[in-house]
Design a protein around this nucleic acid. Structure first.
Lengths: 147, 147
DNA sequence: GATTCACATAATAATAAGTATCAAAAAGAA
DNA sequence: TTCTTTTTGATACTTATTATTATGTGAATC
């Protein structure tokens, strides 16, 4: 955990930004809630629990910065809110999501399932792929059991 | 064209909605701009050219309704605006998009490239897929030529 | 034909996510 | 120290979208 913070610190300083206490608090919240897909508001409320004086704008700025440095991914599932998701270390590509239309849960698929598809797209559409977003909408295993 | 409007009319009446003049004007704009990915504002401005008395809220409501009936798909590319895209007739699934990070162009892939991937996800994650969203970000063929 | 009645609409107010502004504080550099 | 740059917090603002509300409309019933 500490080592991940250190590495993020290096990424920041590499781009001549500092890991200020506010930024560190924000990063810690993201690390502690890695499973979730927090909105900026969610992050703000969680950060505020430990650092009550932090401002909402600072959280937005930090998330924006982390997104530019590819530390987090900014995603939209269509509910009108941006969500911020820590990128797996070393992951070249965005991971995939399973959004349950019953309960709203969002699960992640870390595996890259798209290599074959990307090869086809690059060739057939002559498109140089840099990243992708893949989300499946359906019924998660939990809601299937409930039936 | 007229036949497509007729079929959309049937879809509406099947769900006990009417194809009012305002709704028809909105659908026509979508049909005439099928290649584009219009925002609600875009649609509103285009509809207004022919039906100056239409209200923005009506356009929003119509787009929302068409989305619920799966006539259009509501998509977000991350620029803060929802865009509305006519679904190909008979298409069970959402089509895919190629978003160029240089020029912003959005191209479409109508083919379903995900059958194999979906089979894996359904089995391995025990997730019953209803729909999917797949967007590639990269450099389109036009911008590659410009180099 | 007049009268209901449910649905649609236009106008506009309200909401909420996100951004811009700006003065003050913090952190370096000199 | 003093000067300069970066960062921050508070808050005003913007903008997409939604809610409200009074009005309109067209089919169904009297």
């Amino acid at each position: 955990m500490e080592s991940r913070i250190d590495r993020i610190k290096k990424q920041l300083s590499g781009a001549s930004y500092k890991l200020t206490p506010q930024r560190e608090a924000t990063v810690r919240v993201l690390l502690e809630n890695e499973e979730d897909h927090l909105s900026a508001e969610d992050v703000f409320l969680l950060v505020r629990e430990k650092s009550p004086d932090i401002g909402l704008a600072t959280v937005y700025r930090t998330l924006e910065l982390l997104n530019e440095l590819n530390v987090v991914d900014k995603i939209q599932f269509g509910d009108g809110v941006s969500r911020y998701d820590l990128r797996q270390e070393g992951a070249a590509h965005f991971h995939h999501h399973l959004v349950c239309i019953e309960c709203g849960a969002v699960d992640e698929i870390q595996e890259d399932l798209l290599e074959d598809v990307e090869a086809i797209v690059e060739k057939k559409w002559n498109f140089r792929i840099k990243d992708h977003r893949l989300t499946f909408h359906g019924i998660c295993y939990r809601c299937q059991e409930d039936k």
